[in-house]
Design a protein around this nucleic acid. Structure first.
Length: 561
DNA sequence: TAGAAGTTGAACCG
DNA sequence: CGGTTCAACTTCTA
């Protein structure tokens, strides 16, 4: 056995130097330090069957963000006399090989609550322990340890934000000094026969230039995160008065939030450090907003979802998920595809989906609009389908938070007022009456007059011609009429809720099947009524036309759906 | 068991 | 632009 002691620091999230207890422990009292990142082909390598450029798990924007974060980490490590050792393969297998090959007696990595790492880390820990290697795996991704909160609550996670906040209280480290820098790191030991590479480029991962079209404006990395943080912190009034629901989802040149979510997701920014920075500002001002709407409240939301996700089996599914209402969502792939590909015919919805595809980031309220539209608001498509699209394309997609929000927005859990539906027309209009956001992300509509930009199908043909955008040719017709579709959704949600209540939550697949059939039968009857309405409506239109009271029948298109 | 509360609805009114 | 109404869900609390 070689002399001295070697530590292996395994980076997964937590891609930072500041406030990184695992890295600190790994570098202390060690002769050698091996800072490792494992490129998992499943997460990084191209999967050309996927619906957009990227791997089977991540869109290209997030992969790029990750690579930038790794490069930044590597360059910070080099300044400290070390570097990032990049390896390729299945992370579990690669790590075991490293532990066998190198003279390691201490393995450090940040604790992770996601099911993927829970099972992987368990295996790795047991290998390490059998090999006499010490492991250190601190909770440093979140403010609180989810397990502590669950224990305080008698073994089950709190299911409301308020009860979470009450249970959580203040973090133990609130007024302690976080370690924000490291002066130097131990040298890298002999890497033996392990194949080490530099941080790869996108091209080196196997992507082609033609796939690199939609590039997010947000650059990854710890340096970038701290720069962003330091740009807005001096604006104390903005920090103190931040109220999440008052943000403007249509602001894109200067987003109305911090856009720190992708940095928190990868741990380029420590949530604990961010928490302390916010408290420093709060101390300096007379008054400030409070959770849930304040900036600090946003960090608590993050911890809330991490806690519930950690303590809820099958959190990412409807079936077998005890906090999820069982709802007979439709299987209509053509509606899902229209939503995903930004061709629902509702410019507000489609513009948001384009921003998702191009930027990998949208304002929180914009996410609400498209999530509500896909599920309980209009299309009645399963929230898991929308979750998959977000999970792939968002640069900040985070297992706990993404699933939590889809449960929320689809009224499957946490939030139950299914009658409150975002209008795909009026919601965006109240922030951005001119439709600048739509014009930017859907240039095909850039010359549409503002009177029609949220409902271009109501524009007279002459206006469409002048705007060089004929609806049905240059921009799609609406896939559903919002008035009738949302009414239908309310009815289905009402029936589904009644079923869940009647069966006290234990709804079987057969129960859902029966409800589906019942809903279908009722719809048939309603369709007949609707047909009657249609005839009347056509007659009305005809009468209006003859009387010359209305110059455009296209305004009636929505009701004629 | 009743009443209040819940991160951010829409339409309407003044 | 802020308040009220509409129609109404579940969960928490007293």
């Amino acid at each position: 056995m070689a002399t001295g002691s070697g530590s292996l620091m395994w980076f997964r999230k937590g891609l930072r130097i500041h406030d990184n207890p695992a890295l600190e422990r790994a570098s202390g009292a060690s002769s050698f330090l091996y800072p490792v990142f494992v490129i998992d082909p499943r997460y990084m390598a191209p999967d050309r069957r996927a619906f957009s450029p990227g791997s089977s798990l991540a869109g290209l924007n997030r992969i790029r963000f990750l690579l930038e974060s790794l490069s930044d980490l590597d360059s910070s490590l080099r300044k400290l006399g070390s570097r990032l050792l990049v390896l390729k393969g299945d992370p579990g297998e690669v790590l075991v090989r490293c532990l066998k090959e190198w003279n390691i007696n201490k393995l450090c990595f940040e604790y992770d609550t996601e099911p993927y790492y829970q099972s992987l880390d368990e295996k790795l820990k047991s290998f390490a322990s059998s090999a006499g290697i010490e492991t250190f795996s601190p909770v440093s991704h979140t403010l609180f340890n989810p397990a502590d909160i669950i224990e305080k609550n008698g073994g089950r996670p709190p299911l409301s934000y308020q009860s979470f906040v009450k249970l959580a209280g203040k973090p133990l480290w609130e007024s302690s000094t976080l370690n924000l820098s490291i002066s130097s790191l131990p040298p890298i030991g002999d890497v033996g026969s392990m194949e080490i590479s530099e941080v790869p480029t996108i091209i080196e991962l196997g992507y082609s230039d033609s796939e690199l079209v939609d590039e997010t404006p947000f650059r990854g990395g710890e340096s970038e995160a701290l720069k962003r943080l330091k740009e807005f912190l001096p604006n104390k009034a903005w920090v103190a008065n931040f109220e999440k629901p008052k943000g403007d989802p249509s602001a894109f040149d200067k987003p109305d939030t911090t856009v720190l979510s992708p940095y928190l997701k990868f741990g380029c920014l420590s949530s604990g450090y961010f928490y302390q920075c916010l408290n420093d500002v709060y101390r300096d001002v007379k008054k400030h907003t409070q959770p849930p709407v304040s900036l600090l409240g946003q960090l608590l939301w993050r911890d809330f979802f991490y806690t519930v996700a950690f303590g809820t089996p099958n959190f990412d599914r409807m079936k077998g998920n005890r906090i999820c209402k069982q709802i007979p969502w439709d299987e209509r792939d053509e509606l899902l595809a229209a939503w995903r590909e930004a061709r629902t015919g509702y410019p507000w919805i489609d513009a948001i989906m384009v921003q998702l595809k191009k930027w990998g980031w949208m304002h929180h309220l914009a996410r609400h609009c498209v999530a509500c539209f896909l599920t309980r608001g209009d299309l009645f498509v399963h929230w898991e389908k929308g979750r998959d699209v977000f999970e792939r394309l968002l640069i900040d997609s985070d297992w706990a938070i993404n699933n939590g929000n889809w449960l929320w927005l689809s009224c499957s859990s946490f939030f139950y007022q299914y009658n409150r539906i975002y209008s795909p027309i009026s919601f965006g209009k109240k922030y951005d009456p001119n439709g600048n956001y739509i014009r930017h992300f859907l240039p095909v509509l850039k010359d549409m007059p503002k009177e029609y930009i949220y409902e271009p199908w109501t524009a007279p043909l002459s206006v469409q011609t002048k705007a060089k955008c004929i609806i049905g040719r240059d921009y799609p017709k609406t896939v559903v009429g919002h008035d009738s579709a949302s009414k239908e959704c309310r009815r289905k949600m009402g029936e589904a809720y009644a079923l869940n209540q009647r069966l006290n939550g234990s709804v079987s697949e057969q129960d859902l099947k029966n409800l589906r059939r019942k809903l279908e039968e009722d719809r048939t009857e309603e369709d007949e009524e609707l047909d009657g309405f249609l005839v009347k409506s056509v007659v009305d239109t005809h009468r209006i036309l003859r009387s010359g009271a209305c110059s455009s029948i296209s305004a009636h298109r929505d009701s004629l759906f």
